[in-house]
Design a protein around this nucleic acid. Structure first.
Lengths: 249, 249
DNA sequence: CCTAAATTGTGTAAAAATTACACAATAATC
DNA sequence: GATTATTGTGTAATTTTTACACAATTTAGG
């Protein structure tokens, strides 16, 4: 809040006088604990997974919880989310975007805590979970049942956000290894969107986008004819981002 | 943040023990002042407008600012935004959605303040500004120059959000009077999207959506052939929302 | 080494959606 | 009653999307 408000008990402007002491003003504001929570998606065995940990509150004993942390007093929100991600995955070039703030007053049994949810996409193979909490693991999105706090709601919203977002921008590549076959790519899109896609049309669409680099290699260790491997041209995509209109399946 | 974190100074889980006192835990969290800011859009004279007030901080003297307020300690975020909207416009059935949290540490000259931005759409005709601050007014989106705080950024993000959102859901009706002509509707879409649209195709598209109710009335006070007036079938839209895929221009 | 199983890779025709485009009808103004 | 401004309407051309089948490649197993 940065404006006077006739009906607000605090920060009232009296007769058009300007406020000279912004620090003094902010000191009168009530304060609230603030956290970030990361919905970290991965893709494994043709399923979309999310990285969870057991809640450490007795109140939520046995329930799953997102990875999160307090936002420090002088820390940017994105920075806090990035810190959580980095501490947990050891990686630092990971896709991360803010999705939504959740602030229902009773969402935390310990009192009012507001959280900002972030969505992150990473390639499960390329990272080793840094912290060996045995309860930290990749959980299938399908059979999440009860989660701690409002984390089920947060996961649901982030999942819908992802479904929408992936049809506007080719984010899916963040979930795949550097080199991937078109089959893997299609499996990923099918898993995220919950659809069956036509193989020929799918390939046509991605070749038309012209962001795939043929690396002149083939799958190995598959019990059938191996597919060609491709890389995603992140550079070209970044350049052409502006012109980008969407994918659509 | 609702998880223990090995590297976090606070809220540490020791040897797998569960935390029994969530209130005690939350009491150890640092707290931050939190506000909401509303980007209230209106449509007048074929221009998209935003409702602004002069900043009451001397630091930002003369600059324009969004309408916002502190989030009270036990108030939901949506509720706080709604309160701001209601206090300013006197209306209570207004479109309102959360867009993004802004938390850059130096965004407020009085110290750390995090704000959650909301986007709202209302019909300028149908409401009377309640509070007669003479500096509260509808400002054209085009010639906003310098704003207080990071409000220029917030307005920009909300405007882009709106451009995108209006192509997925027919939100535009919130900005128009109850009864409107197709010309007004087209002007609105053209103003928001910054495009020129083909009249015949535009009409075709909206009739195909089948959310327009012909009220069997005509425009008055126009110096030319009057157009038919329509209402938007909000009810039918709400029912069919799920099936909705998008508009596209 | 031969066969079976699984999957890759490829093109085209039909259907659907989008675009471009012009003129008569209506009401107001002078 | 002529002029001006705008409404209301349909169709053909183009583009996009969808549906669909078969030969080629590799592995696995007898």
């Amino acid at each position: 809040m940065e404006n006077s408000f006739n009906t607000s008990p605090l920060n009232r402007k009296r007769g058009g006088e300007l406020i000279k002491d912004p620090v003094g003003l902010v000191e009168t504001y009530p304060t609230i604990p603030l956290t970030v929570d990361c919905v970290i998606f991965g893709f494994e065995e043709n399923k979309l997974k999310v990285l969870l940990i057991r809640s450490d509150l007795e109140y939520f004993e046995g329930k799953w919880s997102l990875l999160g942390d307090i936002v420090q007093p002088s820390e940017d929100l994105d920075e806090a989310a990035y810190r959580v991600l980095n501490q947990r995955t050891g990686m630092d070039d990971i896709f991360l975007e803010q999705v939504k703030a959740f602030g229902y007053p009773a969402r935390h049994p310990g009192g009012r805590v507001i959280t900002i949810a972030y969505c992150s996409l990473l390639n499960i193979q390329h990272h080793q979970l840094k912290i060996l909490d045995n309860e930290l693991h990749w959980h299938s999105l399908e059979n999440l049942n009860e989660m701690a706090f409002d984390h089920q709601l947060i996961v649901d919203e982030c999942y819908h956000w992802l479904q929408k977002r992936i049809q506007e921008h080719p984010l899916g590549f963040n979930l795949l290894p550097e080199k991937f076959s078109l089959r893997e790519l299609q499996n990923l899109y099918e898993a995220i969107l919950g659809l069956n896609l036509d193989r020929r049309n799918f390939r046509k669409k991605f070749f038309a986008m012209d962001f795939l680099i043929d690396v002149e290699e083939y799958e190995t260790d598959v019990p059938h004819r191996p597919g060609k491997l491709y890389k995603f041209n992140f550079e070209k995509y970044e350049k052409n981002k502006r012109k980008w209109t969407g994918i659509d399946f």
